[in-house]
């Protein structure tokens, strides 16, 4: 067991080197450079542009730039953003809690609704409920996020006035952010319960929108996976042994059906962490997705390579956790 954990940890290193190399190379292969972009329609005297490139270290050969980046990254220095002139690590960590908070809440509601609906649909196969779950999840899965977000905003925020249109907390609360997670900061901050309530209200619609696709995927995955397991021999054996319906479904079938669901959960959560760009744009959510996209548009090389390396590390870490969860769900994996 300890050896397999260590092996898994060792596989992380080449993955991260690969991710950093791809991010570094891809953005440099795309035409356009940060200085030209900063100068915009104005253009710039070639001597001035050359001087600016030299200041930014962009005049060095690409391989040298990569090694400087890796050398600095090893000691936690991801470089400085060309646009904001602030350290990439500071820029990333000031935005990541917003992304994580939104992703966690979205995944929680996707799980809380997706799992039971998937189980119910599988147990009541071919019933009205089953068709309703399949149909709704298909709609949820194919929903254009931007449209869905705006519809919710127009209905719940503008017409009914139940939720704010965008932002993370009411403008009346000037919180000193300690953790970056506003649900926590507002609860312990001077705004008290009212500030917390405001943070929750701001979180409802974005989480609803962001959780829609994971919810649909989880519900459908749970249903199909459980149906498959319910047809297996060991379930028939369990039933034949005279075990209660509850025990057969929850203890025997569901535990086995969970394996593909855990995989999908990991992939979905990983994709949410890489940035829910559309949701962040609609709800003016200050997360890493929007920040990274803006940086690509601006060819802000240090932000792209640093940001990608951070996110790749998160996703790799998450996958490790998922792998360990397999071992817990599926004991056979422990010996592998």
């Amino acid at each position: 067991m300890a050896l397999s954990v260590l092996k898994k940890f060792l596989t992380v290193i080449p993955t991260l080197i690969g991710a950093s190399l791809i991010a570094f190379a891809l953005i440099r292969m795309v035409p356009g450079d940060p200085v030209t972009n900063l100068l915009g329609e104005r253009g710039g005297d070639p001597a001035v542009v050359a001087e600016m490139n030299q200041k930014l270290g962009l005049d060095k050969p690409a391989w040298e730039q990569y090694f400087i980046f890796i050398k600095n990254a090893c000691v936690g220095d991801m470089g400085t953003s060309i646009v904001s002139k602030r350290p990439v690590s500071e820029e990333f960590w000031s935005r990541f809690p917003a992304t994580l908070e939104l992703s966690v809440v979205s995944m929680v509601w996707a799980l809380v609704l997706g799992l039971p609906f998937g189980i119910l649909a599988a147990l009541k196969r071919n019933s009205v409920l089953d068709y309703a779950v399949i149909g709704t999840s298909l709609i949820g899965y194919s929903m254009p996020i931007f449209w869905w977000g705006l519809i919710l905003v127009i209905f719940f925020s503008v017409n009914l006035g139940w939720f704010p249109v965008s932002g993370r907390i009411g403008i009346e609360y000037d919180l000193v952010s300690k953790t970056g997670f506003l649900l926590i900061d507002s609860w312990f901050g001077e705004g008290g319960f009212l500030a917390f309530k405001s943070a929750v209200k701001h979180l409802v619609l974005p989480a609803l929108v962001l959780g829609t696709i994971p919810l649909a995927v989880i519900a459908r995955m749970t249903r199909s996976s459980l149906l498959e397991v319910l047809g297996e021999d060991f379930v028939r054996t369990a039933k034949a042994k005279g075990l209660s319906h509850y025990r057969v479904v929850i203890i025997h079938a569901l535990r086995n059906a969970l394996i593909p669901i855990v995989t999908v959960f990991g992939l979905l959560f990983g994709s949410l962490l890489t940035g829910a760009i559309l949701t962040e744009t609609i709800f003016s959510w200050p997360g890493v997705g929007r920040w990274l996209v803006k940086s690509v548009e601006a060819r802000d090389y240090p932000v792209i390579q640093g940001g990608v390396l951070y996110i790749a590390s998160m996703v790799v870490l998450l996958n490790l956790v998922i792998d360990f969860m397999y071992m817990w769900v599926y004991p056979k994996m422990r010996s592998k």
């Binding site: 705006l150 127009i154 925020s157 503008v158 704010p164 249109v165 965008s166 609609i282 003016s284």
Partner: peptide, 20 residues
């Protein structure tokens, strides 16, 4: 004076309508 950063134009319009 508060700057509420809202990158999408249609969302800015909804915020104006909602009095935000």
């Amino acid at each position: 004076l508060i700057f509420s950063i809202t990158p999408d134009a249609s969302v800015r319009y909804q915020k104006l309508k909602a009095g935000e």
